[in-house]
Nucleic acid binder design. Structure first.
Length: 506
RNA sequence: GGCCCGUUCGUCUAGGGGUUAGGACGUUAGAUUUUCAUUCUAGAAACAGGGGUUCGAUUCCCCUACGGGCUACCA
């Protein structure tokens, strides 16, 4: 690596929600930048006016924010190399495209999309390249005057790169090592579209150069077009400044085959996007990890482990730890199938490790949404501590803790009623009178008294525990009963026993 | 079809010329928890195939197979 300051960019196209692979690319970019005390730039690649989606840019910004990743430069915070939206840089690209034409590395092409479609149908494996470019409508083939006339008449045209013949383009990918391509196999990609906007190929090279990007991370799907980019760096005379490339392995469908897509989420029942995404045109809502109840720490952690590890058995990493441990050499080459079960495990681990204070707000919101009002913060903190180890997703806090704030709306009556006896009624009536006499309502104290009373009444403790639990909780779940009772306090415990007794005996 | 990339338990992966091929998720069994979950213990489970190179290949090379990506005036 050179002594230049490390600068990386995440350059999404604002066409919809951000999916797993996108966030992982952000993450690796960010980890690398921060590891090397460099800059992380957010650049919006909105060069396709047809695919542009309102709100997508804001969504990307919100995603980064949720993840705790702050760009050093972006369309909103600006920076030395602004603007960071390619649509706002439009005039820049034409200049470089024209320069390439002037130097003979590119040419004007006047073929219409319809004509090219026809060609593709007519000629098997048609490529706009060395084999066919001299039979098509372009400045390589047409007489100079005719080209000038067409240009003068504002005839719609594109600028294409002229791929050299019989050459090999190779480079050293930071992840894949030596990679090479035969130029005869690569077609004359469009650089500048008829609307004057650059294609990705031109824009990525020009902007990476202008923004002084030193390391370029992107998905493996870009590998086949790498030779075009390499050539552009060379033709434009910037080869010495070319970033190092890292083509990341893809995230694959858990079942079947292929790249993970939005559709798979709907089909298999798990989110693919970082956050909920609402398509304003169709009204379709694509669920996100955030809304499902993932902690951002867990989300980033599980994403990082999809293709990276630190070489030890450690699997739980905070963002800071990842920055410290990250290295490109430890990124795997092969694509990874996404496993939602493991994803949930990461979240459960993170919930367990996060202290109640940090969880407080989120749990409070979840309870509020369900109509459970929390007024005592200290009490909420205690509740979180006692139930968090049985929550996998944030919304699990509702079922696990609602009964601490309100009496059970209904009881799992079938678990107690068939085995109910008058002796049990008698026991709980006695318990209600005995409980207030206790000096301490600590779990151990109530448990001792509970058991003693059972013995006095000649009943088995085991037959009384479940009914007691159901009286307090409503169902067969939750922490230890006496811990629950302790938190609830004597008066609330007694009220619940009495109320449940009516339901059990009625 | 052409080109490019890849291939260790079901999944994510560690490892690397000589290992009982390790961990995690999931799964199975047991323990603990007089509920559920947690936790703990144990078990099943993998080097795609064929050729080389080598005293010795899962590891290095080649081929095949399989998987994936690209093949737009989309990124």
């Amino acid at each position: 690596m050179s002594d230049k300051k490390v600068r990386v960019r995440f350059a999404p196209s604002p066409t919809g929600g951000l999916h797993l692979g996108g966030v992982r690319t952000v993450l690796f970019n960010y980890l690398f930048a921060k590891k090397h005390k460099g800059d992380f730039v957010l650049r919006i690649e909105d060069t396709d006016q047809n695919r542009y989606v309102e709100g997508a840019e804001q969504y990307i910004l919100d995603c980064l924010k949720w993840c705790g990743i702050t760009p050093d430069e972006s369309p909103v915070v600006g920076g030395q190399y602004a603007p960071y939206r390619q649509s706002e840089r439009k005039p820049i690209y034409r200049e470089y495209a024209e320069r390439l034409v002037a130097q003979g590395h590119a040419y004007y092409a006047f073929d219409t999309p319809e004509e090219l479609d026809a060609k593709r149908k007519e000629i098997p494996n048609f490529q706009y390249g060395h084999a066919h470019r001299y039979e098509l409508c372009n400045s390589l083939n047409l007489p100079l005057q005719e080209v000038e006339a067409l240009l003068h008449a504002n005839t719609p045209h594109v600028i294409r790169i002229k791929m050299p013949q019989d050459d090999t383009i190779s480079f050293n990918d930071m992840i894949r090592g030596y990679v090479s391509f035969d130029t005869n196999q690569v077609d004359d990609k469009v650089l500048l579209k008829a609307d004057g906007m650059p294609t990705y190929h031109l824009a990525v090279v020009v902007d990476d150069y202008l923004m002084k990007i030193t390391h370029a991370f992107r998905g493996e799907e870009w590998l086949p077009s790498a030779p075009v980019h390499l050539l552009l760096w060379e033709f434009l005379g910037w080869k010495a400044d070319m970033p190092e490339w890292a083509h990341l392995p893809l995230i694959l469908k858990p079942d079947g085959h292929g790249k993970l897509s939005k559709r798979d989420g709907a089909r298999l029942g798990f989110p693919v996007y970082a956050m909920n995404w609402l398509d304003k045109k169709t009204g379709e809502l694509t669920p996100g990890f955030r809304e499902l109840g993932f902690l951002p720490e867990a989300f980033l952690n599980l994403l990082a482990m999809l293709g990276w590890n630190d070489g030890t058995d450690q699997e739980i990493f905070s963002l800071d730890e990842m920055i410290e441990k990250f290295s490109i050499e430890r990124i795997s080459k092969a694509g990874a199938k996404f496993d939602f079960e493991k994803a949930k495990w990461y979240n459960a681990e993170w919930i367990k490790r996060t202290d109640a204070e940090s969880l407080k707000l989120k749990v409070w919101e979840i309870l509020k949404e369900k109509g459970v009002t929390v007024t005592d913060e200290a009490y909420l903190l205690k509740v979180i501590d006692i139930v968090k180890e049985r929550c996998v997703l944030l919304p699990d806090f509702y079922q696990q803790s609602a009964y601490f704030f309100q009496q059970p709306a209904e009881y799992d009556i079938n678990s107690v009623k068939p085995k109910w006896t008058d002796a049990k009624t008698d026991f709980f009536n006695a318990l209600v009178t005995v409980l207030p006499e206790l000096d301490s309502f600590e779990p151990a104290a109530t448990e001792t008294r509970f058991k003693a009373l059972a013995e006095e009444k000649g009943l088995k403790v085991g037959d009384l525990m479940l009914p007691f639990r159901i009286m307090l909780v409503g169902g067969k779940f939750g922490p230890h009963v006496f811990d629950i009772a302790a938190l609830l306090g004597p008066s609330e415990t007694i009220i619940r026993i009495e109320k449940a007794l009516e339901a059990f005996t009625g």
